[in-house]
Computed example of a mutant assay.
Amino acid sequence: MDIRFVAGFGPISPDPQPALDFWTTTLGIHLHELAPGYHHTEDLAGTRAFAIWPLAQAAEATFGTSQWPSDRPVPQAWIEFELESPEAVAAGAAELRDRGQEVLAGPKVEPWGQTTARLLSPEGLLVGLSYLPSFHESES
Rank of each mutant, 00 (worst) to 15 (best):
E87W: 05
F81E: 06
S70W: 04
E87A: 15
W78A: 10
I79H: 09
F63S: 04
S70L: 13
P73T: 04
A88H: 02
I79S: 09
S66E: 15
S66N: 14
I79N: 07
S85F: 00
E82I: 06
E82V: 08
E80H: 07
V74W: 00
S85L: 00
A88C: 09
S70Y: 09
E84D: 13
S85W: 01
E80R: 02
W78Y: 10
D71N: 14
V74H: 00
R72P: 04
P75G: 03
V89C: 05
P75Q: 01
V89M: 05
A88V: 02
S70P: 05
P86I: 08
Q67T: 14
I79C: 12
D71I: 04
A90R: 13
S85D: 00
F81N: 06
S66P: 15
E82R: 10
A88S: 11
P75L: 03
A90L: 08
T65G: 07
P75M: 02
A61N: 09
T62K: 03
G64D: 03
T65V: 11
F63D: 11
W68P: 01
Q67M: 10
W68L: 05
Q67I: 13
V74I: 11
R72D: 03
E87Q: 14
E80S: 14
A61G: 12
G64N: 02
F81P: 02
S66W: 09
F63A: 09
E80Y: 07
E84L: 07
D71C: 05
D71S: 08
S70A: 15
Q67G: 06
E84K: 09
T65Q: 14
F63K: 05
L83C: 06
F63E: 07
Q67K: 12
E87M: 10
A61T: 10
P73C: 01
S66D: 15
I79M: 13
D71Q: 09
E82N: 10
A90I: 07
E84M: 05
S85H: 01
A61H: 11
F63I: 11
A77P: 06
I79K: 06
F63M: 09
T65P: 01
A90K: 12
I79P: 06
P75W: 05
E87G: 10
F81T: 01
E87L: 12
S70T: 14
A77Y: 08
P75E: 03
E84P: 01
T65K: 13
I79A: 12
L83Q: 01
